[in-house]
Design a protein around this nucleic acid. Structure first.
Lengths: 256, 256
DNA sequence: CCAAAGCAAGAGCACTGCTCTCGAAGTTGG
DNA sequence: CCAACTTCGAGAGCAGTGCTCTTGCTTTGG
């Protein structure tokens, strides 16, 4: 005896699911993604097989195409999820253990460590988003919002430090070239932050370099070169913090 | 009428090729690699197909297995070649235009630009070596020698600067943790350089971060974020130079 | 209650990496 | 010079892949 709910009501209620059909659909989509993630973790993106996923789920391969029109679409879904996961890891790192009360350098370090930890735990998912993009495949627009989540955390830390005056101007070396002003203005507006453009340049560079450090470790560039990875990463990341004006001078970093 | 040459003589003469058979073999191997590189450039590593390579070369697919026992072996060969290519690009950047006579910061910048330029010209080959490793595949020991070629160039620049006293000690921020001393000693010995361990830590970090910058640009992380890529890269790399003690203070960088 | 839409299943196409066998070439020692 | 030996190319074949199309069945909604 279900009370009549027309489509309009449902739409206005947002996330409420109507029939058993749709309920089954989102469950199946979730099951497919879960199984795909499992195979991704064990064999890597290149060996992710639609047929194998279907087989494991007890369905025939062609049925899977009702939920994901192609293999790349499945991968895109996983990519978006991965961006969300690393973004959430970063956010939780600032929220936890004192959270915003901690000093900006400590939060910076915590976020970097959290991102690295996530990457080490989910190497193939990390490779999916920060490694080489699959075949000729270009990440669709939809992923960009999820992608900026992590960066936003870093920018938030810098914003707090800047607002409280704890940020040293990063004027060492040559200043940021004027050509970048337009790009930075765009970023500042889109992320709704209030920071000077030169600082944003440093932040973007630091964010990018952070993934250089993580990728190098994860993709084997440090094999037989760096064995004390925790110590190396901690030091390098502290230097990145210094580069953007955090943690220099009097502030004492919780060192290795 | 061929003068008798036994195996010993040939071995002692090194690269001399004997029969038409071996001559043909190295030619065919080269042709296979060339065609594979062509397909790599157009379709990416994941779509590199042994059958397609063979087809294009007018041979049957099974014949190809006489030269490369598996697809991964072909990829390994391409990886080694790619490491060599980027290493050579880096070396030529220091050799050309004044070469060692140029100031260390200028050479540093030139090398970074050369590596980036090579990456932009050969994105798929770059992805092969600095992107996510293919499937579950671990790069064999043989690639490590070629891999260190590029890093060696950077270390050489730092060495020259250090020897001539032009290097500022990079003591800003926290010092490198002691745990890294062992790793750095190993690097110093293997690369036959004479630099203090803390400096080597900074160099390794900078080398790693350099590939973060390049990978971010190449793998789409800068899409709709940074459009003035030359300017951004130049600035970020100059800051990396500063980080390792090059180019700070009085030296004037040929800025953007 | 019945048409419409969503769905699973199967067959099938073109492709892949890789193995095995079988003759034809090339190489080498007597 | 020729017989034994090795290397090679070609073909067939296996197991797997992404993806499409058709055929019925079930759920849904007017």
């Amino acid at each position: 005896m279900v009370i009549a709910l027309n489509a309009g009501t449902l739409l206005s209620m947002g996330s409420r699911v109507q029939g058993a059909r749709e309920r089954a659909r989102i469950e199946i989509v979730a099951a497919i993604k879960a199984e795909a993630r499992r195979q991704l973790a064990s064999d890597g993106a290149a060996k992710l097989s639609l047929r194998a996923v279907a087989r494991e789920l007890g369905m025939v391969s062609s049925a899977l195409y009702r939920y994901f029109p192609s293999r790349d679409d499945l991968l895109t879904a996983l990519i978006t999820d991965a961006y969300d996961a690393v973004g959430e890891a970063a956010e939780q790192a600032t929220a936890g253990s004192g959270g915003a009360a901690d000093s900006p350098p400590a939060r910076w370090l915590a976020v970097c460590r959290a991102v690295r930890a996530w990457a080490l735990e989910h190497p193939h998912e990390y490779a999916l988003i920060y490694g080489s993009p699959v075949p000729g495949y270009a990440a669709p627009q939809s992923t960009t919002v999820a992608a900026s989540r992590g960066a936003l955390v870093m920018f938030g830390i810098a914003q707090d430090a800047y607002d409280s005056g704890a940020l040293r101007e990063p004027t060492r070396g040559s200043a940021a070239p004027d050509a970048l002003a337009r790009d930075m203005a765009e970023i500042i507006e889109r992320l709704d932050i209030r920071l000077p453009a030169p600082l944003v340049v440093e932040l973007v560079a630091a964010w990018s370099e952070l993934f250089g450090l993580i990728s190098s470790e994860l993709f084997g560039q440090f094999n037989r070169v760096v064995t004390e990875r925790d110590a190396f990463f901690g030091h390098a990341v502290a230097r990145l913090a210094d580069q953007v004006g955090l943690g220099g001078g009097s502030a004492v970093l919780p060192g290795e």
